[in-house]
């Protein structure tokens, strides 16, 4: 009983909500990875690096504008756009010529990009930890059902659904999205009817990179921005995408929720091994549904 009351005490519950708000970031990043994997068939290991670049860019923008709400908002816009621009260069320069390659080759190619980007970040920003302080308006906590929840986490909890709806609209309501979905199923057919698949793919890749950058910018105030943050994220994002169903954006949403929830709950139940639970959840799902929770585009 004592255990249960501990579980439902207000402190742990708000801790749980904070954990949940972090899954928003997991969702944003892994949905980008999922788009690229599902439509372009690239297992993009460099996705984590782009997320890291997003975080460092956000740091630089905020410092350039001298802090405050305006600087923070500017960072949330400029950092993802910067990462998207980088993605555009990568897509046009390299991937657009290499779509037909074997997955193993693409995996290793993106890994080599991850190595390169990692060192470029080291050259530009150095090896020290960087941190971003929230603008004053966003410091402090709101009361939700009598529980204290930091404003920023509240913002994150709201951003998640907004991004989900945005992606749904892009994929289902725009011409670009419809073509991309068709191309994911049958690339040759789509180009045979005279649609320039190249630009659709470029758009998809850039959108995916934008999401990686956005995730990085959003995590910036909550963590130490450092080299190596790409490594820990990319494996989680991959696991989420695998668990959700390769290429399925809703799978990425579901996967993030499962991953984030099992982690938050795990830490409540067994603090020392909390981090193990999401991995266990992924394996449990895949043992029974080896192709993921939702249908894959593959």
């Amino acid at each position: 009983m004592e255990f249960l009351s501990h579980l439902f005490s207000s402190g742990t519950l708000s801790q749980f909500l904070v954990g949940l708000s972090r899954t928003t970031i997991l969702f944003i990043v892994s949905s980008g990875l999922s788009l690229i994997l599902g439509i372009l068939r690239i297992p993009n290991v460099a996705h984590g690096s782009l997320y890291m670049v997003g975080a460092f860019l956000a740091y630089s923008v905020i410092h350039l504008f001298g802090g405050g709400v305006a600087a923070f908002v500017a960072a949330l816009v400029i950092a993802p756009l910067g990462v998207a621009a980088l993605g555009f260069v990568l897509e046009r320069g390299f991937f657009s010529h290499l779509y037909e390659r074997e997955h193993l080759m693409l995996l290793l190619l993106t890994f080599s990009f991850a190595l390169i980007i990692g060192d470029l970040v080291k050259i530009v920003w150095g090896t020290e930890y960087r941190s971003v302080t929230l603008p004053v308006v966003l410091q402090g906590s709101a009361e939700i059902l009598g529980l204290p929840l930091p404003y920023y986490n509240l913002v994150l909890l709201l951003v998640g659904p907004v991004i989900a709806v945005f992606l749904w609209l892009v994929i289902n309501r725009t011409k670009m999205g419809k073509i991309a979905r068709a191309a994911a199923v049958d690339r040759e057919m789509v180009s045979a009817v005279g649609i320039n698949v190249g630009w659709v793919f470029a758009f998809t890749f850039v959108l995916g990179c934008f999401l990686a950058g956005l995730g990085g910018a959003l995590i910036a105030p909550m963590t130490n921005i450092s080299l190596g943050m790409d490594h820990s994220l990319i494996i989680e994002a991959f696991l989420i995408v695998i668990m959700g169903g390769l290429g399925n954006v809703w799978g990425a949403l579901l996967g993030s929720l499962v991953f984030g929830l099992t982690q938050s709950l795990g830490i409540l139940v067994w603090p020392k091994f909390g981090i193990v639970f999401p991995y266990l959840a992924v394996v449990a799902v895949l043992v029974f549904r080896p192709r993921g929770l939702l249908s894959s585009t593959w």
Partner: peptide, 20 residues
């Protein structure tokens, strides 16, 4: 900057041997 060197070698190899 070992990663930069390794990454460059690797990507060149993958890209310029068209068969992989």
């Amino acid at each position: 900057y070992w990663g930069l060197i390794l990454g460059t070698i690797l990507s060149l190899v993958i890209i310029f041997l068209p068969d992989g």
